[in-house]
């Protein structure tokens, strides 16, 4: 069953209610990330992204990087945050598995992210970009929900 579980990663509902993958497009991947506050929803969205890119549960935390992102509004902050992480995979040749937002306002965030060097056996797939397709970021009674669609 090991392989089955591994293959099912994208189908998992986010055991702790952090995120959920949605079957929508005829070509790519969509997820909803949840959080009681901005810090949590941004961290959970990053985690969801990296379950698509790599086998996140097998990726260690030994390398630490700092990321600062600024945008015009919170929607764009989310897109730019995820986009920055996608670019870092190529530039730093790292997979990330832990995301710690240290400071966040509606238009700026500062984070420490942790991961390790890319290895083919830890990889899942290349995410080309975050798209605007059905992108949504909204406040709910429970906190925040981000709907994100990825081009694979």
């Amino acid at each position: 069953m090991g392989k089955k579980d591994k293959q099912d990663d994208q189908g998992k509902e986010g055991k702790t209610g952090k995120y959920r993958f949605i079957d929508d497009l005829t070509s790519d991947v969509m997820f909803e990330a949840y959080g009681k506050d901005l810090k949590e929803v941004f961290e959970n969205a990053a985690e969801a992204l990296f379950t698509v890119i790599c086998q996140i549960e097998k990726v260690g935390h030994k390398i630490e990087k700092e990321i600062v992102v600024e945008a015009d509004d919170t929607k764009n902050l989310m897109i730019d945050w995820l986009q920055e992480l996608i670019a870092r995979v190529d530039v730093e040749e790292l997979f990330f598995s832990r995301f710690d937002i240290q400071k966040i306002t509606p238009t700026i965030l500062k984070a420490k992210v942790y991961g390790e060097e890319v290895k083919p056996e830890l990889g899942e797939t290349v995410v080309k970009a975050v798209t605007y397709y059905k992108f949504d970021f909204k406040k709910t009674p429970e906190g925040y929900v981000a709907t994100v669609s990825l081009d694979i």
Binding site: D8, Q10, F21, D24, S27
Partner: peptide, 16 residues
């Protein structure tokens, strides 16, 4: 041209 999403394909088919 795709007829099924990647997500649906993963759920429906086994790589092995």
């Amino acid at each position: 041209g795709r007829a099924m999403s990647r997500h649906a394909a993963i759920k429906r088919f086994w790589g092995d």
